[in-house]
Each structure stands twice: as structure tokens, then as C-alpha cells.
Design a protein around this nucleic acid. Structure first.
Length: 833
DNA sequence: CTCTCCCT
């Protein structure tokens, strides 16, 4: 143990923590920090009579760290060194080092914020940045500054950016320690990883063949998920592999014996190719690996604030993760790592994985903060503060569940929920169920929701949760698994016993009425109560649409609750659900029901109607028909319909349209004039149209709207005068005719007039206070356009003579003078001379 | 073609 690299830095650490209350240790893999650091402080004077708490992110790691430290002291666990985790605690009277897992630390801080006899808290593997570690550090820092100035905090990490943590810990000193691993060659293979040309599993398979040919020892391949692992297996099975090659998948859901087979050393004469998820990145050490192949992808859960539902996505790993994966090839001998991306792409990878707090459901975090007495997370010091949108979503859910009051303070019910430790949805269900004497059923449901599905394959296609409840009770009675997954059954049974113990219910107690499952689940998911819309489609009380596979009996249920839904765009898919009776819904969600009068547009009759509805979220549970809407209600609905369907519902006659266009022309000259575009008019219906639709009830009535008056109403008296002056309806031309102006293009109003009527006028008539020349359409006697111009003077000088020749030929009896400016204009079609 | 990994 003396030759471990960590030994060189321990004196430094001891010196720092004698004088100060915080330190950061950055130690590379293989340095030995987890087991060497805690015992080093036992004899420090400031720790006299106090204990050390070390946080580990995983149960397995916590147990083995405690075991190793104890054995180094020649003791067993529970003497000087112990551990504490959910449902498993080994701590004795003389225990001074307690290794805890994440939820435990949060509970200890919440039940005694001063941390009683604890002298030092160590956060191990802090670079993983789990939600609980971030929360634990924030709470511990506040405990230190408010209650326990002598409390020491040590943050240990493999790859963390030390400076950011240092500034969070009041400029705590950073100690760095090299690791001890064998060198690993890195080979970038961009051609294999080009996702536009091939799939990750195809390139992984190609890299496996290359590694088996070029390198000795076993191969570890990192893939994003189970699906890719299975496909890579198929891909490799297509061609022959060197004799003795064995493929070993490895992922969390795999049964234990197969996981063991992947981890165990290969037997003589065999070479092992392990196809793994990120589970092999930190938690497990696999013997004999000399080559790592990394697709550079991982699957991660992202909480969508938009829908309030979690979603799985495949994302590139961080540089830190890629280095961690590469390190797995150098544990026992020098190795090689094939990266299926380019050196340039590597430069663009993020340095670290996104901290869990930035992406995950924050409901539990928000409940813990409320219990701590914090309403604004900004009151605590964070490396990354909880993001605002998901946090707001979380507190809204907590209010709906009754955990927070309107002011955001925790309620007594919220306190009971927090103590249970389960997700707030689950905790709320368990407490409501206990009130209804349904705790035994609720405990099973909670366990079913937290563990993986009992059914695999075709049975999993039926989304009815009560089938799982029946399978579970069958297993509890007779230990027969039926068609269900035995490992999953055992896990669910273990889990449900924990909940039963918390609710003080006996494990042997029968299920009671399984058909109450839907009711109990509706307490946990009040926003996912579904109302049938047909064809397996449901509308959820939270506002989303969702659909389940057709053909299953559950699809015919008028009401369901859907704990398992995905987050796809448009309508969600329902994976797990249970039927819910309307009677239960009305009775047990009475507090959430909203009775209101609703005025609505009946598109069938094209008229406004009113009804009284009972709502649960977006669902309408009951309604009466045909009450009469008040004039105000009617008016407001009509305006909404016009806004939605468009202004063409109004009676646009020729003169009205011209008025609108003239006003638009004025707007183009003077920005302060009202904008007459469809969009602007739609946005301001309330102001200009509302007074003119009073008493109207339907589309036919709308045809009586005095639209010209309504538009004129947008202008005051002065503006109307200016309108008539600058945007006249007609222009009087030299012949004496009043010719209408066409404003359909407000940028260039058109005056269409017979050429002969313009004789004698030198320049183009102008409008808009002289700023805008009209666009002249000069017409033949038969009103055919001969010339389009906005420069009349130039026309007379140049083009007129060509046009004249043409016109003379076609209209010989008309008068086509050589000097049009001195000729007498005429509006008569026939020649006057 | 529904499923990364943990934890109270």
C-alpha cells in the first residue's frame, strides 16, 4: 500500500485540512484515493471524537471500499469502518468511517443539518456530478457556513475542473495526484465512425475484426445501448471470426449470470469480446482487456420541460468519458484504444458530461430544497444551479400533489412525502393509498413502476399494469413466474417489501381489489389521466394526446391513467396504463375538478353556444348543452373565430377593400398610421371591430357588419381629411373624367386611363402629398393597355410617337395629334373632328 | 423495432 501514488500527497492534504475546512483532491485512476484517504485522517486532532462520512455513488463501490479499508486494519466491517445504505447498514459503536450512498447523505443532512458528530465529509467520484452529490454538497456547504464552522469538506474527483470547485469552496486548495496505469495507444478511425455512411454497430463490428487481427488479449466495445449490442452481435455473426472468439454482451438489464460471464476472465484458448454499455465505464472492472473500441456514444435520459416527461437520447460522450473508457485497456498491461471518430471531432467533444442536475426531473430535488427551507435555489451555492424551466415544472407538480402550499412552502403532507424518499409522485400515491387502506396494493404498484417491466417479448405489448400486478401476486403466492421475467419479479418483490415496511404493512397481506390500481396510480399521475377518444387514442389531463396499441381490452376503457408514456413529438405512445372508473375519478379527484361555464364556437351550426362543463385539467368530464351565451361572451368568441378563420369571414365589398388599401398606402408613407395587413388587423380586432359586432351570434350576422365604418373608426377627423387628400379615391384628369385609383399594390397605386384623356398634361399626377407618382396604365380607346409608366413627361417625348403610329392604324377615325401637350383631351370614344 | 445508469 505504501507504494500507491496517493501516499505522496497525504501529508499535504493533512496539512491543508488542519488549517482550513475545505480541500479538493484530483487523483487520476489507479491512484488509490478511495481507500487510502479516509483512514489517513483518523488520528488528526480536529477529528478527535468525531467521524468521517464518505459519499460513494454506487452501493457496490460503497460496500467494497468499506470492506477493503476494514481488512487493511485487520478488522471486519462494522468496527472502525462501516457503511450505511438503503436497507443495509453495518455500523457499530466504535465506527469512525461511514461510507454512505447518495440518498442516505441527503436524509442524514435533512434530519440533522448540523451533522452531529461528523468531523469530515468526503465526496468521492464527484466528477460524476450526480444530482444527489450536487445537492449534498450544496446542503453541506450551507451547514458548514451556518451551523458548523469546524466541519471539514473534501471533494475527490478523477477529472474535474478543479478551479470551479475551488471557487465554490471559498478558494479551497487543490491537490493533484498522478495515477498508476499502463500506457494506452489511441487510434482514431474516422472512416469507421462516419455515421452518415454507416451505423455505429457496423463500424464497431469492423473495428472488432481489425482489433482481433492486430492486437493481443480481450476486447471491450462501448456501445450506446442494448439494441446496438444485439445488432453488433448479428453483424459479427455474418462473417467468420478467429477460432476461440466468444462474444459477451454486458448491460444493466442482463441477468446476473450473463453479466458475470462477461466480467469473468476468458478461459484458456478463448478470446473474449465484451459488447457493453457505459456500465463498464466505471462500475465494473473486466479482467484481461487489452483493447477498447469506443463508438463514442451513450444513451442518456433527458427531462423535457415542454412535456414534463423524460426521454432517452443517444449523444456523443465527453472527453472525460472517452478517456475513462480508454483507461479500461490499461489496467493490467499496455493497451490500445480505437476511437471511431476523428481527431478533429474529438476536439469538439464537450470536456465533461452534462451534470445530471441540468437534464433530469427536478421534482425530488425541489422537494428536498423545500424541506430544507429553501424556496429559491439561488439561496444555496451550486456548481451549476438547477435550471429554471424544469425547476418551475417541478414545483408546479409538487403543488398539484399537495407537497407545497401556494407560497411554495412545504406542507405537512410534503414532509411525510420527503421522508419516504421515493419520487414525489410515488410518495404521494403511497400516502393517499394508506388513507384508503390500500397500502399493500400501492406498495406493489410503486415497486412495479421503479423496476424494469416484468414482461418481455410479446407479453410486454399489452400495456395493462394490472396484468403485472396479477403476475407479481401469483409469484408471491406460489413462486411461479408464469410468463414473467423471474429476475425482474424478484427485484420488484424486494422493492415492494421496502415500501410495505415504510407504510407499516405486513408483506403477507393480500392484494385487495386489484381493480383499484388505476385509482391509486391516478394520485401519482394526476396529469396523465386519459379520456378515450377512440382507436386507442386518449387525451391526457395534462394536455397531451397519447395512444396505445389497438386491440387490447384496455384501449376500450373510457378512462385510464398512463404512468408509462414516451415523449415523441405530437402524440405520446402509452407503454403502461391502468383502467380508471369515472366514479372513482369524480369522487377522489373532487378537489381538482373545475366547474365552469364555457362559451364556444359550434362549427357545425356556425354559431356561438354556451355550456356548463366539469373539467379535470384539459379533460371535460361532464357537460350540459345549450345555455344561452351573453352578448359579451358571444362577441369575444366571434372575435376569436375571426382571428382563427381569417378576415374573409367579413363582408369585404369593393369600396371597403379600396378604403383598406388606401389606408395601407398611407401606412406605407407614415409609420404612425394603422397597419392594415391581415396580421395587424387580426391582432387588433378587439379595438376596431368589436363595437360593430354587438348583438351578433353567427356567421350570417357577420355579413351585416358595417365594415367601412369600422375601418374609418380607426382614424380621427383630421386623419380622414388627410386620407381624402393624400390617398384620393379618384383623380380628375385633363378630359374632366374622375378616374378611380387602384390601390391593390399600396407601394404603387395605379391610374388606368385612356391615353386621349391625358392630352395636355405634362407630368405624372402625384398623390401622397406629392411624394408618390401614380403608375399610369395608358389605354387604347378600347381600354387595352398600351403603355405603363410613372414618367408621363418622358412618355410624351419618346414613346408616344411609336404608340401613335400603332393607334392611328387601328383607330384611324380618332384624333392622334403630333403635339399631344397642346391637344385638347377628350373622353369621347369617337373622333370629335 | 419501447429500455442508459444509479439511488432513498
Amino acid at each position: 500500500m505504501n507504494q500507491l501514488p496517493i501516499m505522496q500527497v497525504l501529508p499535504d492534504l493533512k496539512r491543508i485540512l488542519t488549517d482550513r475546512t475545505a480541500a479538493i483532491l484530483i487523483a487520476e485512476p489507479g491512484a488509490g484515493k478511495t481507500t487510502a484517504v479516509p483512514p489517513a485522517f483518523l488520528e488528526e486532532p480536529w477529528l478527535a471524537g468525531k467521524t468521517i462520512l464518505m459519499l460513494e455513488p454506487r452501493r457496490l463501490a460503497a460496500r467494497s471500499a468499506a470492506g477493503y479499508m476494514a481488512s487493511c486494519m485487520g478488522e471486519s466491517v462494522g468496527q472502525t469502518v462501516g457503511y450505511r445504505m438503503r436497507m443495509d447498514t453495518k455500523v457499530g459503536r466504535n465506527t469512525r468511517i461511514v461510507v454512505v450512498t447518495e440518498g442516505v447523505l441527503t436524509r442524514m443532512l435533512q434530519s440533522d443539518p448540523s451533522l452531529g458528530d461528523v468531523g469530515l465529509v468526503i465526496f468521492d467520484e464527484f466528477h460524476e456530478r450526480s444530482l444527489h452529490a450536487d445537492l449534498g454538497l450544496a446542503l453541506a456547504l450551507e451547514a458548514q457556513s451556518v451551523l458548523r464552522e469546524d466541519l471539514r469538506i473534501l471533494v475527490m474527483s478523477a477529472t474535474l475542473d478543479g478551479d470551479r470547485v475551488a471557487s465554490l469552496l471559498n478558494e479551497a486548495p487543490v491537490v493533484r495526484c498522478p495515477g498508476r496505469t499502463y500506457p494506452v495507444d489511441t487510434i482514431y478511425m474516422p472512416e469507421a465512425g462516419n455515421a452518415t455512411l454507416t451505423t455505429p454497430e457496423k463500424s464497431a463490428a469492423a473495428a472488432v475484426r481489425r482489433a482481433l487481427a492486430e492486437q493481443p488479449g480481450d476486447v471491450l466495445v462501448f456501445l450506446p445501448g442494448e439494441r446496438e449490442i444485439r445488432r453488433t452481435e448479428q453483424e459479427l455473426a455474418l462473417g467468420s471470426l478467429p477460432p476461440g472468439t466468444v462474444l459477451r454482451p454486458l448491460y444493466g438489464q442482463l441477468p446476473q449470470p450473463q453479466q458475470d460471464a462477461a466480467v469473468a476472465p476468458a478461459v484458456d484458448g478463448e478470446r473474449k469480446v465484451v459488447l457493453a454499455t457505459s456500465i463498464a465505464e466505471t462500475s465494473l472492472t473486466i479482467e484481461g482487456v487489452r483493447t477498447v473500441i469506443d463508438t463514442g456514444l451513450r444513451r442518456t435520459q433527458v427531462f423535457s420541460a415542454r412535456t414534463g416527461m423524460p426521454r432517452l437520447t443517444t449523444v456523443p460522450v465527453s472527453k472525460a468519458s472517452a478517456d475513462q473508457r480508454r483507461g479500461r485497456a490499461g489496467r493490467t498491461a499496455p493497451g490500445v484504444c480505437y476511437r471511431l471518430w476523428s481527431r478533429e471531432a474529438h476536439d469538439h467533444l464537450p470536456d465533461d458530461n452534462v451534470p445530471e442536475i441540468m437534464e433530469t426531473d427536478l421534482a425530488q430535488l425541489a422537494l428536498e430544497l423545500a424541506l430544507w427551507g429553501v424556496r429559491d435555489p439561488g439561496a444555496l451555492a451550486w456548481l451549476d444551479a438547477p435550471p429554471a424551466a424544469p425547476y418551475a415544472q417541478a414545483t408546479a407538480l409538487l403543488r398539484q400533489l399537495g407537497a407545497l402550499d401556494a407560497g411554495g412552502a412545504i406542507t405537512p403532507h410534503g414532509r411525510s412525502m420527503a421522508v419516504l424518499g421515493a419520487h414525489p409522485r410515488i410518495a404521494h400515491m403511497l400516502l393517499r393509498a394508506a388513507d384508503l387502506a390500500a397500502a399493500p396494493l400501492a406498495a406493489r404498484l410503486a415497486a412495479l413502476l421503479q423496476e424494469r417491466d416484468l414482461f418481455r417479448g410479446p407479453a410486454a405489448l399489452d400495456s395493462d399494469l394490472t396484468l403485472r400486478v396479477e403476475a407479481l401476486f401469483g409469484f408471491e403466492r406460489s413462486a411461479s413466474s408464469g410468463g414473467a421475467d423471474p429476475a425482474a419479479l424478484r427485484a420488484v418483490q424486494r422493492e415492494s417489501r421496502v415500501f410495505l415496511a415504510q407504510l407499516q404493512a405486513a408483506p403477507g397481506e393480500g392484494p385487495g381489489d386489484i381493480s383499484r390500481s388505476g385509482l391509486l396510480l391516478s394520485f401519482a399521475y394526476p396529469d396523465r389521466i386519459g379520456q378515450k377518444r377512440g382507436d386507442g387514442a386518449f387525451l391526457l389531463s395534462g394536455g397531451r394526446g397519447a395512444a396505445m396499441r389497438e386491440g387490447q381490452p384496455l384501449a376500450r376503457s373510457p378512462y385510464i391513467v398512463a404512468p408509462g408514456v414516451d415523449d415523441r413529438a405530437g402524440q405520446s405512445r402509452i407503454m403502461l396504463a391502468a383502467a380508471l372508473s369515472e366514479q372513482d375519478l369524480l369522487k377522489h379527484h373532487a378537489d381538482s375538478l373545475l366547474e365552469e361555464r364555457e362559451v364556444y364556437w359550434d362549427s357545425e351550426s356556425g354559431s356561438v353556444k354556451a355550456r356548463r362543463v366539469t373539467r379535470l385539467g384539459t379533460l371535460i368530464l361532464k357537460q350540459t348543452t345549450h345555455e344561452r351565451a351573453t352578448p359579451e361572451e358571444t362577441e369575444s368568441v366571434l372575435l376569436k373565430v375571426i382571428a382563427a378563420e381569417g378576415l374573409q369571414l367579413l363582408p369585404w365589398e369593393k369600396g371597403t377593400t379600396q378604403l383598406r388599401q388606401r389606408m395601407e398606402f398611407m401606412h406605407s408613407l407614415r409609420a404612425e398610421w394603422p397597419d392594415m395587413s391581415d396580421e395587424a388587423l387580426t391582432d387588433t380586432l378587439e379595438e376596431w371591430l368589436a363595437p360593430f359586432i354587438q348583438g351578433m351570434r353567427n356567421l350570417r350576422d357577420l355579413q351585416r357588419v358595417k365594415l367601412t365604418q369600422a375601418l374609418e373608426g380607426m382614424l380621427d377627423w383630421n386623419s380622414r381629411q388627410l386620407l381624402n387628400k393624400e390617398a384620393p379615391t379618384h383623380i380628375t384628369v385633363p378630359s374632366g373624367s374622375r378616374v378611380p385609383l387602384d390601390y391593390s399594390n399600396p407601394g404603387a397605386p395605379v391610374l388606368a386611363v385612356r391615353l386621349q384623356e391625358m392630352f395636355g398634361q405634362i407630368n405624372t399626377p402625384r398623390i401622397g402629398g406629392g411624394k408618390v407618382p401614380v403608375l399610369l396604365h395608358l389605354l387604347s380607346p378600347a381600354r387595352r393597355p398600351m403603355q405603363i409608366t410613372s414618367d408621363l413627361a418622358s412618355f410624351w417625348q419618346n414613346t408616344y410617337f411609336e404608340v401613335k403610329k400603332d393607334l392611328k392604324g387601328r383607330y384611324p377615325k380618332h384624333y392622334w395629334p403630333d403635339n399631344p401637350l397642346e391637344a385638347v383631351p377628350t373622353n369621347r370614344t369617337r373622333s370629335s373632328k
